[in-house]
Design a protein around this nucleic acid. Sequence first.
DNA 1: AGCATCCTTGGTAGCGCTACCATAACTGTC
DNA 2: GACAGTTATGGTAGCGCTACCAAGGATGCT
Lengths: 371, 371
Amino acid sequence: MAKRISTGRPTIADVAARAGVGAITVSRFLRQPEKVSEALGASIAAAVRELNYVPDLNARALASRRTDIVVVLVPSLTQNIFSDVLRGIYDGVEDSGLRIELNNTRYSSAIEEQQVHAALRHGPAAIIISGTEQTPATRTMLANAGCPVIQIMDLCDDPIQKVIGFSHFRAGLDMTQHLIDSGYRRVAFFSGWMNARSKQRLLGYRTALENANLFDPDLIGQMGNENPHASRGSIKDFHQFSTAVMGRELMLDMLDRRPDVEAVFCNNDVLSIGALFALHSRNVPVPERIGIAGFNDFDYMEAAYPALSSVRIHRWKCGNEAMMAVRHQLDGGDVGPPVVDLGFEIMRRASTDRHGTLQAARQPEAALSLS
Amino acid sequence: MAKRISTGRPTIADVAARAGVGAITVSRFLRQPEKVSEALGASIAAAVRELNYVPDLNARALASRRTDIVVVLVPSLTQNIFSDVLRGIYDGVEDSGLRIELNNTRYSSAIEEQQVHAALRHGPAAIIISGTEQTPATRTMLANAGCPVIQIMDLCDDPIQKVIGFSHFRAGLDMTQHLIDSGYRRVAFFSGWMNARSKQRLLGYRTALENANLFDPDLIGQMGNENPHASRGSIKDFHQFSTAVMGRELMLDMLDRRPDVEAVFCNNDVLSIGALFALHSRNVPVPERIGIAGFNDFDYMEAAYPALSSVRIHRWKCGNEAMMAVRHQLDGGDVGPPVVDLGFEIMRRASTDRHGTLQAARQPEAALSLS
DNA sequence: AGCATCCTTGGTAGCGCTACCATAACTGTC
DNA sequence: GACAGTTATGGTAGCGCTACCAAGGATGCT
């Protein structure tokens, strides 16, 4: 009778006995098969198969002080932005044996710090963290984590190890410039609650308008000053950061307050959908009277009538490249360039095509496609 | 010189030495403080604080054969449905010390089976799994997992331990009935790729129409027969299950094919948005000429013009109740009722209000709210 | 007082794996 | 053919924690 209840599952010692080798050789074969001769490898593989042996990950973790867990920290689960990033991460994890521990930081540095601290307790294989605005304590912990650390969805000059993302400032700047170039003068900015990255986009908006001598602070519409995620209370009547209802209300309010508004740049696509419906309800012609642009380029932007312009950002790619970088490093590869700029794309569609140039240009195409 | 490089972090032995007690007493104090006398507890707590001791989770896992990891399996990250469920789970995990390992099964039973198998290798604290359609092998593994197992987002008669969700069949049935009651006769059904739960909703739709002698298979519009998630190839040009563009195309096609169509029940809100824009583009009056209903009740349904009817399902609550049930069980509580039906709500809005009854009924309310 | 019972505390012996070192076998060089 | 250098294999000793058992002291009862 054993003193301790064992799992009953075969252990590495069972495999070693059956294959007639030392336990350490089995361990070595499982992790670095090339270091074991072919003959032994074959008999070990056979023993593993016959016993249906599966290594115990906890024992491995204790002995090696390293797990297979990639810790991912995202600020929010509400927005599809991060589901796309996560999809990229999951599509990159396949067949790697890595597991993903997902943490929700709720846009709170304090929660993020605590989660990083907790995560380091079990020696993660790697850490993927959203944004570049970590607290000094978090940065220090991450710098000393002893594993790959990838920051994503933003850019900065001094990443902890590596950052993969794009410039929110430039994205805001370029879309605003597009609106100006399309002939709109009084360009509004709509947003829900703003995080650090939203603020960069707002700064880009402001800069573009200031450069054109068109900036008017009165045209900035914002709802929801609190960070609904960071608070622990009132979980049930949870608020989202940006909703279509907010976009509608912002638009209706702006129409009343500033009927001379010519275009709105929405910090989030979902706001732009709400704004569009508000204009529909008031029979305001889009894009002739008022132009609309969003941010993120979710799929419904293209389907809208009129189709809505937006800034396409590479969410899936961002997550996927981060995971690929992690795997590359875990396989012994180098870190590569510390800053990877994935860029973005200004999607010019009917909703900002004030003078019908887009349609005119497209006409021949459409004709061709019908032939 | 130690034979093995230790972490350098204080261990339980260091704490025990400092507090002048046995290591096991420290361990006991950390896990079940009530079993240790107050005097010793105080000095142990002091030692923990002074040394900044943090237990090693991997060692704990190896010795106790149980981790703090709750394994969550969802079929998709694409749809906001599951981000809401996840939010509920995360809102329930706070301050529990539990960690979440998120797996994406891609609507594939084979992948799900493999992930459950892998997850059980590290003795999870609990498992939360979407749906009730597990393979026999998966069911067996889960039944023997030796930890709480909660199935969510659907119902069945024989849960593995406990199921928390709602009836997709009844939801489909009730919404279709609502359309019939609103005066629509030729009611279409739009869907993208369909999973088991979507099929239940379709069955509800069909049943309601058959009961009213109105079923017409020609009015079912569907796009995307493949399961884009289960395949491993072509990850980059990834398709979503249901998109607004699909909804638009389905609507345009239906208008051409069956101009007599009177209403559409979309299996997903995002399809209904596309359908609405398609009708806008053809100047078809909603809800007078054609009614539209969706499923999920995302926030933009209320903001649309006209506001879109939908089936509100309790995604957040589903995730949250699952997590609460897990914690209750881990704290030694009982499993409770094996089947928890969270129900759903038919949100009647302007898009299905063919005869203006809703508006008429609301008028007094609106007047009151202005006073 | 004597005995049974409960509660608190500690010692021992692993959990299943891998790091470190040692050894043996093989290779190539002069 | 002797030597160094390389490669393949194994033994030992933990990694840091907790399950199990035992012992001692306190309590309650007859």
